[in-house]
Design a protein around this nucleic acid. Structure first.
Length: 199
DNA sequence: GACACGATGGGCT
DNA sequence: GCCCATCGTGTCT
């Protein structure tokens, strides 16, 4: 609502920590997209941590032109294209040459639902809670594409994360990451975090 | 240049 | 649960 005070953005030090810790503590904060004069807001409810040389599932397992951004400063958006159809949004973590990123896999829509619905018009009649409950769906609902790759989430005008109500510890579950490759030990790491609102 | 393969999502059985 | 569209990226030749 336009009467709400603007909440503080998460600042650089929030992201400049261990990637798994950032992934867990992002739950409950607010992803904000400003587009065409309106604010789209969603409460982050699902994340995954991707690290560096110790994480075969991560794009930063090897440094390539695409993954170079993960080796840079924290608090930056890393947005990549997958499966020929979808964009995925990450927040770069750690820093000082230690690569990492948190994939934002899902949000609960809070504001701008009409816009999100128009961006997801191929699923008419879907429940609000299902509007952006996957990494590709979230980028589609929020009109996030590679044009925003490299955006500074701590200062940028179009895409940022505001401090919200952190998810209660007992309501956070950790599971293996979805759709990753690598050895069994890598795949089993419980680096996906889900905020269960029913807990 | 060629080619294999996705940090997915939608449709259908 | 299974199938697969779709194309950028990385790897190999």
């Amino acid at each position: 609502m336009d009467t709400d005070p603007r909440l503080a953005r998460l600042a650089r030090p929030f992201y400049a920590r261990d990637t798994v810790a950032v992934a867990r503590s992002l739950l409950g904060h607010r992803l904000v997209r400003v587009i065409e004069g309106q604010r789209l807001i969603g409460r982050i409810c699902e994340t995954e941590a991707y690290r560096g040389a110790d994480d075969a599932a991560s794009h930063a397992f090897r440094r390539t032109p695409r993954s170079a951004i993960m080796f840079g400063p924290p608090g930056i958006a890393y947005i990549y294209f997958v499966y020929g159809n979808h964009w995925c949004l990450n927040a770069v973590t750690e820093g000082d040459g230690s690569p990492g990123a948190v994939l934002i896999r899902g949000i609960v829509p809070l504001e701008g639902l009409d816009f999100m619905r128009s961006m997801r018009s191929m699923r008419p009649g879907i429940a609000d809670s299902r509007l952006a409950d996957g990494p590709g769906k979230l980028c589609q609902a929020f009109a996030i594409t590679g044009a925003l790759n490299g955006a500074d989430l701590t200062t940028g005008p179009e895409l940022f994360i505001e401090a919200g109500e952190p998810a209660a510890e007992r309501a956070v579950i950790a599971t293996p990451r979805i759709g990753v490759r690598g050895d069994a030990e890598t795949r089993a790491r419980p680096w996906r975090f889900v905020w269960r609102q029913d807990l």
